[in-house]
């Protein structure tokens, strides 16, 4: 019994080019599958578009407007639209990684801290650079909260700086931990289903059924939180509070 076994990354093809490790592992394979499923979902929904949409087309339009409204709400129509393709792709990449991880025998890409960490680092790093690009040296005002007595500044400014530095950590750990915890729980329960005698096994089995539903919900929620926080960070880089 090894509940963490399914988080193990195995390299199928060990390959590196110009000193960069380009090996193909189960993690990489499921990244491709998730990205492929996301693309397939949209192209299938748009295979013959109509003025009055069918079910899949409605779902695709809904998925588009959901992210568009989020970007418009948080960053604003004027500034947000140029980030929309990136945020849209980010949401669906993470969502399909989360959901494809629930397929039995698959691999959950977003349960790898290095994957979530890569995205978080790129997002926060971009937001930081974009903030300096927009505001120059004034971007440091971001760490000085308004409406706080000057006496408290020596305390507040370090807190702000720490909270800013915590952003990539919290962003990446939140998604990774949610995915890891959920899948570990499922693995433990499946282990009980297999090992317990039949009169006891129904209880963990029922739990796995319910918890798979909860995991689907968590998959959506975590993708949503990851994306909405991305919007918030980009918005902070544009509009200093």
């Amino acid at each position: 019994m090894e509940p963490l076994h399914h988080f193990q990354v195995h390299k199928f093809v060990d390959f590196s080019l110009l000193g960069i490790d380009l090996s193909v592992s189960n993690s990489v394979l499921w990244m491709w599958i998730a990205a492929g499923l996301a693309f397939l979902f949209f192209t299938y929904g748009l295979r013959n578009t109509k003025q009055v949409p069918g079910r899949m087309q409605s779902l695709v339009e809904l998925g588009y407007l959901f992210i568009l409204d989020m970007v418009d709400d948080i960053i604003g129509k004027k500034d947000g639209r140029k980030f929309f393709p990136y945020i849209f792709s980010l949401f669906y990449f993470i969502l399909f990684c989360n959901l494809s991880g629930l397929i039995p025998g698959s691999f959950t890409v977003t349960s790898q801290i290095i994957v979530t960490g890569t995205f978080a680092a790129i997002i926060v790093g971009f937001a930081l650079l974009f903030g300096f690009y927009n505001h120059g040296i004034h971007y440091f005002k971001f760490f000085v909260p308004t409406g706080v007595p000057v006496l408290l500044m020596p305390l507040m400014v370090p807190i702000e700086i720490i909270s800013f530095l915590a952003r990539p950590v919290s962003l990446s750990v939140r998604l990774f931990a949610n995915m890891t915890a959920g899948h570990t729980m499922l693995a433990v329960m499946f282990f009980y289903v297999v090992t317990l005698p039949i009169f006891g096994a129904w209880l963990p089995f029922g739990f796995t059924v319910v918890f798979t539903g909860v995991e689907i919900f968590i998959g959506f929620i975590q993708a949503y939180i990851f994306t909405i926080l991305t919007c918030v960070y980009i918005n902070d880089a544009i509009h200093l509070h």
Binding site: K11, V28, M31, F42, S89, L90, F93, I114, V115, T118
Partner: peptide, 22 residues
């Protein structure tokens, strides 16, 4: 390899969505 492929996979998906879907 996961860092590299995460970025590459995301960029490919981004390109595909930007070109054919959005």
């Amino acid at each position: 390899h996961q860092i590299v492929w995460s970025v590459i996979s995301f960029l490919i998906l981004l390109h595909l969505l930007k070109k054919h879907v959005l």
